[in-house]
Write a protein that binds this DNA or RNA. Sequence first.
DNA 1: TATTGTTATACTCTATAACTATA
DNA 2: TATAGTTATAGAGTATAACAATA
Lengths: 153, 153
Amino acid sequence: MGERFLKSIRLLAECMQGYERLSGEYVRRSGLTHAQFDIIATLGNTPGMSYKELGDKTLITKGTLTGVIERLEQKGLVERQRNDCDKRSFFVRLTKEGERTFCTVFPEVIGNSGKVFADFSDDDFARLEKTLSELKNVIMAGQTESPSTRDCD
Amino acid sequence: MGERFLKSIRLLAECMQGYERLSGEYVRRSGLTHAQFDIIATLGNTPGMSYKELGDKTLITKGTLTGVIERLEQKGLVERQRNDCDKRSFFVRLTKEGERTFCTVFPEVIGNSGKVFADFSDDDFARLEKTLSELKNVIMAGQTESPSTRDCD
DNA sequence: TATTGTTATACTCTATAACTATA
DNA sequence: TATAGTTATAGAGTATAACAATA
């Protein structure tokens, strides 16, 4: 009760919420759902990854993922390819059009929600990055570890 | 492209995601959905509020809110009361059982996800709070303003 | 036996818009 | 006219668990 971290957690939640309110508008405008945008943003600038990895990064469980990827595939934004070295697994990657979408929608969402930082100085950013990095490390350390050092690439 | 705030936004998103992964487990365990927990947490330690206010605070749109509140009402966790001074409006508040739920589930969720802060010093908290407060202010300033100074209480 | 992804179920959330009743 | 909340609709996400193929 009244423990110190409550205030930080609440602030974090408020930042999360505020940021989602800001960016959500632009995500919706792109015709993508939140989950779909999440996938596109996660696949952007990567050679692709497995369902497993995508699920881990986006918090979308595998059952749901099948549906989300399916819809993105129907939109022609992602494509799947059997993983040669583990035939149970797929490799999901952005198609050319998916990359175009990533390159237009992502900056738009990020850019518009990023407007609020207009008055931030380099110093402000440095401090924010440092603090958020530490926070991230602390939060990630609390997750149930699953390093999963792959040995197939 | 490569703008400075991208890193901060990504860190914030990662913190959000990590935190949701941490807390989500405990929220689910409580038998509440994310949206329901959001409502309970928002109503906790308040005398109650209108649908409008609840919607503003939780990002749940009014159409959805009707359903969420309905389910919480069926569970006996919240109750509604006509607002005397504006008969279009309801006052939603936690029931006794809702308060019990808030008092058990909220600290459990918060407490468990808060474990990760075990090693934080007072200084760490102070810095985190300061930075997050500033971030929140910046983010909130970017929202479409809706002060809504009520005059009926 | 464990893991990757699929399928099925039942429910909840979501956006949107038309609607009512109050203001 | 504008606002608070309701209803309806169609689609999407969610948890969960049983399942197939592969490891």
